[in-house]
Amino acid sequence: MNANVKHSEERLMKVLLAPVISEKATFVAEKNEQVVFRVTPDATKPEIKAAVELLFKVQVESVQVVNRQGKQKRAGRFIGRRNHTRQAYVCLKPGQEINFTEEAK
């Protein structure tokens, strides 16, 4: 981990919630060498970068973050809302790759 980044390892383990596996995420991964993660709502870009580098042993070039509003859904006469989510588009340096099938072993 970089000396100038002062994040606790315990906090970094909790920042990334899950990788996003979707058609759009697959397209972005192939075209732009980016990986999409669901992250905690209070995660910052430097924290996300440090967490990805720590967990997957890769070098991160940049991070873009998207706050997605939960959709309104109704069940009969009751209207509810799905949870708001935060996604991070992590751009890896050239030659870097994250293979999720190897990490699970």
Rank of each mutant, 00 (worst) to 15 (best):
residue 62 S to T: 14
residue 42 D to I: 12
residue 54 L to C: 04
residue 46 P to N: 00
residue 38 R to W: 08
residue 52 V to Q: 01
residue 52 V to M: 06
residue 36 V to K: 06
residue 57 K to L: 02
residue 54 L to E: 05
residue 58 V to P: 01
residue 39 V to H: 05
residue 60 V to E: 05
residue 37 F to L: 08
residue 64 Q to C: 07
residue 51 A to P: 15
residue 66 V to E: 15
residue 31 K to M: 09
residue 52 V to T: 03
residue 59 Q to E: 12
residue 66 V to L: 14
residue 38 R to H: 09
residue 63 V to N: 05
residue 57 K to P: 01
residue 55 L to P: 14
residue 33 E to N: 15
residue 52 V to S: 01
residue 62 S to P: 12
residue 44 T to Q: 11
residue 51 A to T: 06
residue 41 P to V: 08
residue 37 F to N: 05
residue 66 V to D: 12
residue 55 L to G: 11
residue 38 R to P: 06
residue 43 A to R: 03
residue 37 F to D: 04
residue 64 Q to M: 09
residue 49 K to F: 05
residue 42 D to L: 15
residue 59 Q to R: 07
residue 46 P to R: 00
residue 42 D to V: 12
residue 37 F to R: 08
residue 65 V to E: 02
residue 56 F to G: 01
residue 59 Q to T: 14
residue 61 E to D: 09
residue 33 E to I: 10
residue 44 T to A: 10
residue 42 D to Y: 15
residue 47 E to K: 02
residue 43 A to P: 10
residue 62 S to I: 11
residue 56 F to T: 05
residue 62 S to Q: 15
residue 41 P to D: 11
residue 43 A to L: 09
residue 61 E to I: 04
residue 55 L to C: 11
residue 62 S to W: 10
residue 62 S to D: 14
residue 63 V to Q: 04
residue 30 E to V: 02
residue 50 A to F: 10
residue 33 E to T: 15
residue 43 A to W: 09
residue 60 V to Q: 03
residue 58 V to Y: 02
residue 60 V to N: 01
residue 64 Q to G: 05
residue 60 V to Y: 03
residue 60 V to S: 01
residue 31 K to S: 11
residue 42 D to G: 15
residue 63 V to C: 08
residue 53 E to Q: 00
residue 57 K to Q: 07
residue 58 V to K: 03
residue 56 F to D: 01
residue 62 S to V: 08
residue 65 V to T: 02
residue 53 E to F: 03
residue 66 V to M: 13
residue 64 Q to H: 13
residue 41 P to L: 13
